Simulated scan of single mutants.
Amino acid sequence: MNTGIEKFDARSRRNLVGVHADLVRVVERASEITPVPFVVIEGVRTAARQAELVKAGASQTRNSRHLYGLAVDLAAIAGNEIRWDWPLYFKVSDAMQRAADEEGVPIIWGGSWRKFKDGPHFELPRNIYPDPNP
């Protein structure tokens, strides 16, 4: 769906550097079909950045899939600004799941987790895409 907003900007492309090619394909396809524009706010993270997020309470693990390029965080855009309203993330998730199905790539949405719901987070499953040995 074309909303007139540049959904896949230079920042998003930069933040996909080092992310697994399967996940990049899903994100790119989702950006074409989503009713809610989004930007990629984080792909690969350093261990230091992950430790900062754990300390701030924004993450609950030091062994994030972001460390290995197996996760991305997407931020919904509404009214030309990043928004954190949950209804927007359900729509982004629907686009990501549809794109994943089309690409034949399984994904996990952080918004479906039981304890620590993370609407912007999407990752490849560990059983199919294991963490490389650090």
Results as ranks from 00 to 15, higher is better:
P35K: 10
G111F: 13
D131Y: 05
R25W: 02
K117L: 09
N80T: 02
G111W: 11
K115A: 13
K7P: 05
D85T: 06
S112F: 08
N127G: 00
I41Q: 11
E28V: 15
A58V: 02
F116E: 11
I107N: 07
G104F: 12
D22K: 03
V19F: 04
A78S: 14
A48R: 15
A78T: 01
W86E: 11
R65W: 01
I5T: 14
A21I: 03
E28H: 02
E103W: 02
I41F: 03
D101I: 04
V17R: 15
P125A: 01
L124R: 03
L16M: 15
P130S: 01
T3G: 05
N63K: 13
Q60W: 12
R62E: 12
H121Y: 15
F8W: 13
S93F: 01
S112D: 14
S93K: 10
L53K: 15
V40A: 10
V19Q: 11
L70H: 11
I107P: 09
G43K: 09
H20S: 09
E102Q: 14
A58F: 09
D118E: 15
I5K: 04
R13L: 09
Y89E: 06
G79E: 02
L16C: 08
V27C: 08
G110A: 06
G4F: 06
A100H: 01
S12W: 08
I33S: 00
N80F: 12
N127K: 06
E81P: 00
A47D: 06
D85P: 00
P120T: 12
R11D: 09
A21W: 03
A99G: 04
E6K: 13
P130I: 00
L23S: 12
V27E: 12
A56R: 13
V24F: 06
M1P: 14
N15S: 06
A58K: 15
W84P: 00
G4T: 11
G104D: 07
P106F: 07
G57Y: 09
F116P: 00
S112C: 05
R126M: 03
W109L: 09
A58P: 00
R25F: 03
W86N: 04
T61D: 07
V105R: 02
V92S: 03
E32Q: 14
F116C: 00
